[in-house]
């Protein structure tokens, strides 16, 4: 009996010390490939997670460099969320191999291909080869510019964070609802602008504007690129100018990371306006969240197209 009491008297303080010394639950460490995913993850995760992103909003996401410093970010990540559909094919494999983090490698609990929750546009049918340009064989990866897909991304994050961090499930659910409400309110506000640009013809530089066009119902009548990823050729531009004159397209939408000289040339021949829109959060100063990005782009598009 004395022996048992002795054991208890020693064990109890040790247990108390152990409990007190136990670290607080660590925040989920989330790394995303783009700023858009980072912002939506932040909306959903709130202060329960930390979020970092690899690419910047003013950078072409196809051509991000696989810097070793990114490997350090990924080494301890719990979640690696990426756009998928081979958007990151030029750099992601090097970073994942370098990070040596089983959690975020394919098959790991934190390997999150966001495209898997998205209804896709431009899925090629039939034979696909490089003669079609830098074609994405699984579908167009620029899906975040449709707010409905923003909701899908948020719900996917909620499910993933809940799976990895069940104690904070309620917070993730509440944050997701709040994000969706904010998005819905914003959508309600810009409905009149959408109605005014419906079916209006525009030209885009790259296929990255297909989802925004699908949402706004503007009609992309041609692309500056003859094929995805292929710079404009004189003969293609000559045909495009004819198309613009025929359809009455008066706006050329392009990303800030393309050289606008060519677009200015086409605009000078057609009387069109070159509209440089950021395709991602942080693409221009001040657009630091997803809803603000969509609101700004839709407002500018509506103003230019009307």
């Amino acid at each position: 009996m004395l022996n048992r009491k002795f054991h208890f008297s020693v064990a109890a303080p040790l247990l108390a010390v152990a409990i007190a010394a136990a670290p607080a639950r660590a925040q989920l460490k989330v790394v995303t490939s783009t700023t858009d995913l980072a912002d939506i993850a932040t909306e959903v995760g709130g202060n329960k997670i930390t979020v970092r992103h690899i690419g910047e909003g003013y950078q072409d996401p196809h051509f991000i460099e696989a810097k070793p410093s990114f490997v350090l970010q990924l080494r301890n990540a719990d979640v690696w969320a990426f756009v998928g559909l081979e958007l990151e094919a030029g750099w992601m494999p090097l970073l994942l191999n370098g990070a040596r983090n089983r959690k975020i490698n394919p098959g790991g609990s934190g390997h999150l291909d966001v495209s898997r929750t998205i209804p896709l546009l431009d899925i090629p049918r039939g034979n696909v080869d490089r003669s079609q340009g830098d074609v994405h064989a699984l579908g167009n990866p620029h899906y975040w510019l449709d707010p409905e897909n923003g909701r899908r991304i948020a719900r996917l994050f909620q499910r993933k964070f809940t799976e990895l961090d069940p104690p904070n499930a309620a917070a993730y659910a509440a944050n997701t609802r709040a994000f969706e409400s904010k998005l819905t309110a914003a959508e309600r506000a810009w409905q009149p602008q959408l109605a005014s640009i419906r079916e209006k013809p525009v030209v885009a530089w790259h296929t990255s504007w297909r989802y925004l066009a699908n949402y706004t119902k503007v009609n992309i009548v041609g692309f500056m690129e003859p094929k995805p990823g292929v710079p404009p050729s004189p003969s293609h531009l000559a045909g495009l100018i004819q198309t613009m004159k025929r359809t009455g397209a008066k706006v050329i939408v392009m990303e800030p990371f393309y050289n606008r000289k060519t677009a200015d040339f086409v605009a000078s021949k057609t009387g069109a306006t070159v509209l440089v829109l950021p395709p991602s959060v942080g693409g221009v100063r001040g657009l630091d969240d997803y809803v603000a990005l969509l609101r700004s782009n839709i407002q500018k598009l509506a103003t230019a197209v009307q």
């Binding site: 998928g84 559909l85 390997h111 999150l112 291909d113 966001v114 495209s115 898997r116 929750t117 998205i118 209804p119 896709l120 699984l138 579908g139 996917l156 499910r159 993933k160 799976e163």
Partner: peptide
């Protein structure tokens, strides 16, 4: 999860 075949509308 979003990674399960049954829950993957994209691919």
């Amino acid at each position: 999860t979003g990674n399960r075949p049954g829950g993957t509308p994209g691919q």
